[in-house]
């Protein structure tokens, strides 16, 4: 067995045992001295659908940024897909992120490009052959219900449509994990539900979905695993849980 194969096998074993995401005593302190995460531990397994909830300042966004490897933990370990993010070198980050699909509250689409180009861009980054891009992108747009709008500029779309484009872009490379930061934050209830149903569909196909949200109604209605954060700590982690009303 080659070294690479051995490494992959070890990684697979780790994913089986500790999950696709594993945090061990993670502390994150910002340079100004504020403690965003105060030693959290967490395991998320393959195929799970997890809500991360909590009020502003609870540490949700910091957790999201750690998983994206935008930030590095001050101490503790963050493993994603068997890779230790605290030891990851800068040049490896791009490749790591290609295993993640990311969706933001503010969509973050490339404004000067049309719908097709925005989705195709994610495939171009991983150097997918042009023929495959031409096949994959329309299929993905059809899945999110935007097949007819592939030529439209992103500023011609509604918020819900823009989020669908972002979702299509996040999924076109078949990521193992989908991270969504307040995906319904800028949407009306109807569009919010449509996006959540899409996320559920994606999860049913085997993708691990982690959604950071404030949306109590959606969290309570979907009966998924809910991780509740407060002041940089996980205060509850329940399968089929509900959004705890702090009042």
């Amino acid at each position: 067995m080659t070294r690479r194969e051995l490494k992959r096998q070890r990684r697979e074993e780790m994913i089986e045992q500790s999950g696709v995401i594993c945090l061990e005593n993670v502390i994150k302190t910002y340079p100004a001295g504020s403690h965003a995460l105060n030693g959290i531990s967490l395991n998320i397994y393959r195929g799970e659908f997890v809500f991360v909830v909590g009020q502003s300042g609870a540490g949700k966004s910091t957790l999201f940024k750690l998983l994206l490897r935008e930030l590095k933990a001050t101490s503790g370990h963050v493993w994603v897909m068997g890779e230790d993010l605290s030891r990851m070198k800068h040049r490896r980050i791009a490749k790591y992120r290609r295993n993640l699909g990311v969706v933001f509250q503010d969509f973050r689409l490339l404004k000067d490009r049309n719908v097709y180009e925005n989705v195709a861009f994610a495939q171009r980054i991983v150097e997918t052959p042009r023929r495959e891009i031409r096949r994959n992108v329309p299929a993905m747009l059809a899945m999110v219900g935007l097949a007819g709008k592939y030529k439209a500029k992103t500023n011609q779309l509604s918020g819900g449509e823009q989020q669908r484009v972002a979702l299509a872009r996040a999924l076109v490379n078949n990521p193992s994990i989908l991270l969504a930061d307040e995906p319904t934050g800028n949407l009306d209830p109807q569009n919010s539900w449509e996006i959540m149903h899409l996320l559920e569909e994606i999860n049913d196909q085997g993708t691990t979905v982690i959604v950071v949200t404030h949306n109590k109604e959606i969290v309570n209605a979907m009966h998924k695993r809910v991780i509740f954060m407060k002041k940089g700590l996980i205060v509850s982690d329940e399968e089929g849980g509900e959004y705890i009303d702090e009042d």
Binding site: R98, R108, L110, K111, D112, I125, V126, R169, A170
Partner: peptide, 16 residues
């Protein structure tokens, strides 16, 4: 800057 951030978030290398 935002455009560069988006590219980086979806896995573009520095070179790209």
């Amino acid at each position: 800057k935002e455009e560069i951030n988006i590219m980086k978030y979806i896995g573009a290398t520095d070179f790209f």
